[in-house]
């Protein structure tokens, strides 16, 4: 099988062939982080007959989860995507709750097509990415999420590296990523796992898998549930652990999509990419402790050397 590989076998070096998202998921799996299993299509698959290979990988996946036609997410995995200075977030299409080989193949073709869509082109031009448009595809098992969201391994607003900033809302991640709800907002200390700040919002919309198990549907959340805190301490603690693991693995701050599975409340990382914008810190001249104390008492800086 020359055009596909299980995600678990991919590493950073495979990005050129399989795109950033697939390579990054491979790294996460290698680091022992819970990521839904799946497989990747290489960029060269765009011009190749891959139906049979997809069918074989999908059968492996089906067997590994003991489910006849498991639902998967089909996403673009562009080369140059997911790098620290360019987040293609939302610029390339994702297809959720896709079942069966034929549907997957349709979604894969749509991914390829979306690469040339106007907005993706514009975005790439904006970034000055000159390489030829090429994309791999990530095919990953769906998580039926009761709650999902995103988290940063630092506070993206203040830049505090000791905090994990977590956004969470009911259902699949679409509502949060698409900005359709104001998610609950938690700031949790990496050091003590305390919730330092939280803001519970009215989460009045959620996405669920459609009734027939194909695609998703948007539903209203009844008011009595919309205002309820959607993560408990235990889940927050677990998310902080995951965030630290991911951060340690990549060695820089990460922006992580996650989901909490409905059936058993397990938490999964769906994808992770470097944080692209952090507040600029004014560069500070090295200062000794004593000179800082002096300035606390209003000793002018030039006088304290």
């Amino acid at each position: 099988m020359q055009y596909t590989r299980p995600l678990a076998e991919l590493r950073r070096a495979d990005e050129a062939r399989f795109g950033g998202k697939s390579a990054s998921l491979g790294e996460l799996l290698a680091a022992g982080i819970p990521v839904p299993p799946g497989f990747a299509l290489s960029t060269s698959a765009m011009r190749a007959p891959v139906h049979d290979e997809i069918a074989a990988r999908y059968a492996e996946l089906s067997e590994s989860v003991r489910e006849p036609s498991p639902a998967v997410a089909v996403r673009s995995s562009a080369v140059g995507e997911d790098s620290a200075d360019a987040t293609f977030a939302g610029q390339l299409e994702s297809y959720l709750w896709v079942r069966g080989v034929d549907e997957i193949c349709v979604a894969v073709r749509d991914c390829w097509a979306s690469l040339n869509s106007v907005r993706a082109q514009a975005y790439r031009e904006h970034l000055g990415a000159e390489h030829e448009a090429a994309t791999g595809v990530t095919i990953q098992l769906m998580v039926d999420a009761a709650v999902s969201g995103v988290m940063f391994t630092c506070n993206p607003v203040s830049g505090d590296p000791s905090m994990v900033a977590i956004n969470a809302s009911w259902g699949l991640g679409l509502a949060v990523v698409g900005g359709e709800v104001t998610p609950d907002d938690y700031l949790v200390s990496k050091v003590t796992r305390e919730v330092v700040r939280e803001r519970i919002s009215t989460k009045d919309v959620e996405y669920r898998p459609a009734a027939d198990g194909r695609g998703t549907e948007r539903t209203e959340v009844p008011p009595d549930r919309a205002n309820v805190r959607c993560l408990d301490e235990q889940a927050l603690t677990r998310l902080v652990e995951l965030a630290r693991q991911v951060e340690r693995h990549f060695g820089c701050h990460q922006d992580i999509e996650w989901a909490k599975r409905r059936s058993d409340r397990e938490l999964f990382v769906l994808q992770s990419r470097p944080v692209t914008s952090l507040p600029e810190r004014p560069p500070k001249a090295p200062a000794s402790a004593l000179s800082l104390v002096m300035s606390q008492f209003g000793v002018p800086p030039h006088a304290s050397d």
């Binding site: 203040s158 700031l187 200390s189 050091v191 330092v196 800082l292 008492f297």
Partner: peptide, 26 residues
């Protein structure tokens, strides 16, 4: 008193400058 509080306050400010969300009690 002044010097003691001042040294401590400097540490507090340093922490808050570098770790803006650190809880005071930590």
């Amino acid at each position: 008193l002044l010097l003691g509080y001042g040294a401590y306050a400097t540490f507090v400010e340093f922490c808050k400058g570098n770790l803006p969300d650190i809880p005071d009690q930590h």
